[in-house]
Computed example of a mutant assay.
Amino acid sequence: MIRGQNPRAPHERGVPGAGRAAAAAPLRTRRCRAAPPTTTVAVERPAAASAPTCEVGGVLHTPHPSSFLNNNTSFAEEFRIRGNECGADQHANITTIANLLQEVGGNHGVALWGRADSGFASMPGMDHLIFVATRIQLRMEAYPKWGDLVRLETYFAEDGRLATRRDWHITDAITGAYLGAATSTWVTINMDTRKLSKLPDSVRSRWLSLAPSPPRAVLPPEATKRKLPDFPADAALTGPLVSARRSDVDPNGHINNVCYLSWALEAVPQKVYEKYNLMEVEMDFKAECHAGDTVQVLGHPLTDLSNGNGCAQQFLHALRKPDGGEVWRARTTWVPKAKK
């Protein structure tokens, strides 16, 4: 099993707490190629009626095994929020969620076709090609707390002639409550030349056979792929000058894109960061960044910061190299935290 050792059946979508029952019989398993001998992924099957299993008086529930759903066209995985992934309010932050998106997306690929020698879960036959994100949009209705169990379901689809799309649906694994959703656009590049390359037709056909039909969209199409404004010549907000570290490099050989998001948040005014929740981030990836690169963190308000009485706030963000080249641009939307 990829994560979790309690062999219980996956819970049903949309039913609070459904599926947390212990299985009455062993699950049929699907072995991941190129994975360790003990690594298996549970195949979807109905939950058996039995008493739920939990630890410490019901405070910490055991995650379900990772599982394929909907005739093996989507993949779900559960994660417990760890203390080092939370802020002072004991809630997970946006970078925690972004890291989970990457993890479950990569695990989906590994569960389908095994672990590749390079890149993030590249398919057999890609021959030095890797998937890289060009855009990610993440929208959160609520953030989980330390110790909470979250469930992410993910699936992919075709997105034009050269691009692909991956979506995520995020819920509370115990109650079934909706937490958020994300969508993303990916292209393939040659790992050696770092130039855009077309996915071979044979690989693309196999890949599409594993996608939902008809395609599913986790966010309304009209709310996605909205053009970000040009960044102004004079940024109103300036963050630190960041030096990309070797420890920030991911399996694709460049700085992990979650680092961009964490750097950008350093330009957000302290009052907004403390009193508001980051509800949505829309990110465009412009260029790669590598270990040793220096990046300037810039921000600019899109709303009137003086009008902070219960109003949402928006910011435009940019990461630039010393030569002026733009690495990343994003728009964030913040809403006031609920008063206790």
Rank of each mutant, 00 (worst) to 15 (best):
E288D: 13
Y155Q: 10
W207Y: 14
W328Y: 13
A217I: 04
V327D: 01
R226N: 14
A163M: 15
L179Y: 04
D148E: 14
D323F: 03
P65A: 09
G57P: 02
G83E: 10
A121K: 12
N71W: 08
T303V: 04
A47K: 01
R28K: 09
A173C: 09
A51H: 13
A42E: 00
V272L: 15
A173T: 11
W113S: 09
N307W: 02
L199P: 05
L196N: 03
A42S: 14
G109T: 10
K339D: 04
R8D: 01
T38D: 14
C32E: 13
A181M: 04
E44L: 06
P322N: 11
L27R: 14
G109E: 02
P269L: 06
R194T: 08
P26Y: 06
A121T: 07
P16I: 12
A318P: 00
A76Y: 01
L316C: 11
Q296G: 04
A51R: 14
D250P: 11
T62N: 07
P65G: 03
V43M: 10
M279K: 15
P200Y: 11
N71A: 10
I97G: 03
R226D: 03
A51Y: 15
V281G: 03
T154V: 12
A244E: 00
L138S: 11
G19D: 01
A217Y: 07
S213G: 02
A211H: 09
S184C: 14
V41T: 15
Y260C: 07
W263S: 01
V132M: 04
T175M: 04
D192M: 07
D248F: 09
R28I: 09
G308Y: 06
A338D: 13
L305S: 04
S247G: 07
L265P: 00
W186S: 06
V132D: 03
L316A: 12
S213H: 14
R139C: 05
D172L: 09
L278D: 01
L298D: 01
T39G: 02
D172H: 13
I2R: 02
H128S: 12
G310W: 00
Q313F: 06
G17W: 00
E282Y: 00
A142W: 03
A111K: 01
A182I: 04
W113E: 10
F131I: 12
D148R: 02
P63C: 10
K225Y: 07
G125H: 14
G19H: 01
S197R: 08
T332A: 10
G160F: 01
G147R: 04
T39W: 13
W328K: 03
S306R: 15
Y276N: 05
S213V: 15
G83L: 08
M140V: 13
Q137S: 09
R82V: 12
A35V: 06
A88R: 05
I81V: 15
L199Q: 12
L138W: 00
A34D: 11
T303S: 14
M279R: 13
R329E: 09
A264Q: 00
R33V: 06
R226T: 13
C259T: 10
Q314T: 02
R82D: 09
M279Y: 12
G83F: 12
S306G: 15
T185W: 02
V203Y: 08
P65F: 02
A25S: 12
G324Y: 00
R8K: 15
A34E: 06
A47I: 04
N6S: 11
